[in-house]
């Protein structure tokens, strides 16, 4: 399982695929989002990232892959609407 739910903490591991997105949303509908740990994930699908952006968890531990970390950040910060 690439997504591990541990109470309010969700750990993303390895390749995190589109199919997981619904499970994540459902999890957070019941347990308010806490920490998200992306440190060991190597790929995150867009669908999961937009759940993160919408949920705005209190803390996000960035991926250890610097490129991934650099470009995940603007998605998590996506608050502005398309002009």
């Amino acid at each position: 399982m690439p997504l591990r739910f541990d109470g309010p903490t969700v750990r993303f591991e390895g390749l995190c695929m589109v199919e997981e997105a619904l499970g994540l949303v459902e999890h957070w509908r019941e347990t308010p989002p806490g920490t998200v740990d992306l440190s060991t994930c190597t790929h995150v699908h867009t669908a999961l990232l937009q759940v993160l952006a919408a949920a705005a968890p209190a803390e996000v531990i960035p991926p250890s892959d610097p490129t991934l970390a650099r470009f995940v950040a603007p998605i998590l910060a996506s608050r502005r609407p398309l002009p």
Binding site: V25, T46, Q50, A53, I75, S78, L82
Partner: peptide, 27 residues
């Protein structure tokens, strides 16, 4: 050569209860 990325949304994020994770809201 990806050098800069900015992400915006089509619509403001709805509350999680209303979020459809499979509808792409990003640009």
């Amino acid at each position: 050569g990806l050098g800069a990325l900015d992400v915006v949304t089509r619509e403001p994020w709805p509350p999680l209860e209303e979020l459809d994770p499979y509808r792409c809201n990003l640009a």
